[in-house]
């Protein structure tokens, strides 16, 4: 592990330098440079097709960058895939769960894969947090969209990752679940996690996060502290959005 430690430049939770991603001739990301500090909630906003999900997939090592350097928790994604995957939690609009297994069995499977200590207690705790305790023995197939989303988030944090990557975590959640998730995000933040998430809701992003990044057509066009976002600023950004073909 010493070699790995020497590689770590632990200033940023997530750092990309000149990150580009091509799908054939299509440019999904173009020269993206971002820096996400530790212990903050950073939101990436942008219209559909801006490249948000592509970026999240690269950070979670599901997808390879075509060009540029990407470091997660100080580790190069090209070299330390397995180690990065241990330190991150990733949730997306697909639940990534087994429909034929029960809620608890799903979490148990992923818990075994991560080697989570004292797994049953951890599962019990998490299920209570995402309010799925009474459905724990039902198969995932029978859960509603919103419940599956909550379970997917529980799966993502099962192994207590230091960095959470959440791709549109609010999609499909009702009012109550939205409040629940916001509460949980703040709880995780105060316990030392770093959260990077995507959304297309600018107002919401400004309200809950520390920092906002704006992605348009695969380019990072704006990077600002959320506190610096004024009403006027937001309106200006919306206009840019519209120009970007929303």
């Amino acid at each position: 592990m010493t070699r790995m430690d020497s590689e770590q430049q632990n200033t940023w939770a997530v750092e990309t330098k000149g990150l580009s991603k091509f799908f054939g001739h299509i440019i999904a990301l173009h020269e993206v440079n971002i820096k996400v500090p530790y212990h903050q909630l950073v939101t990436i906003i942008g219209p559909n097709g801006a490249g948000k999900s592509t970026l999240m997939r690269i950070l979670s090592t599901l997808s390879r960058p075509s060009r540029g350097q990407v470091y997660v928790d100080g580790l190069d994604v090209g070299k330390w895939g397995a180690e990065i995957r241990r330190r991150i939690g990733y949730a997306t609009h697909q639940p990534l769960l087994y429909n034929d297994l029960s809620v608890r069995e799903n979490l148990r499977f992923f818990g075994h894969m991560y080697g989570v200590p004292d797994l049953e207690t951890r599962i019990q705790q998490l299920l209570a947090k995402v309010e799925l305790l009474d459905r724990q023995h039902d198969t995932v197939r029978t859960l509603s969209r919103g419940m599956q989303q909550r379970l997917a988030i529980a799966r993502a944090v099962l192994h207590s990752p230091t960095i959470l990557l959440l791709d549109e975590p609010y999609a499909g959640l009702d009012q109550h679940a939205t409040e629940l998730l916001t509460h949980l995000l703040h709880e995780w933040l105060s316990s030392g996690s770093t959260i990077l998430m995507t959304t297309h809701d600018l107002n919401w992003a400004a309200r809950i996060s520390d920092k906002v990044l704006v992605l348009l057509n695969g380019r990072l066009v704006h990077q600002t502290e959320a506190s610096a976002l004024s009403e006027k600023h937001i309106r200006e950004l919306y206009r840019q959005y519209a120009g970007g073909g929303l």
């Binding site: 599901l62 995957r85 990733y90 997306t92 697909q94 990534l96 769960l97 894969m113």
Partner: peptide, 10 residues
């Protein structure tokens, strides 16, 4: 349900 992605995240 995208389970292969779930496995690839291990």
């Amino acid at each position: 349900g995208g389970c292969m992605e779930g496995l690839r995240l291990m």
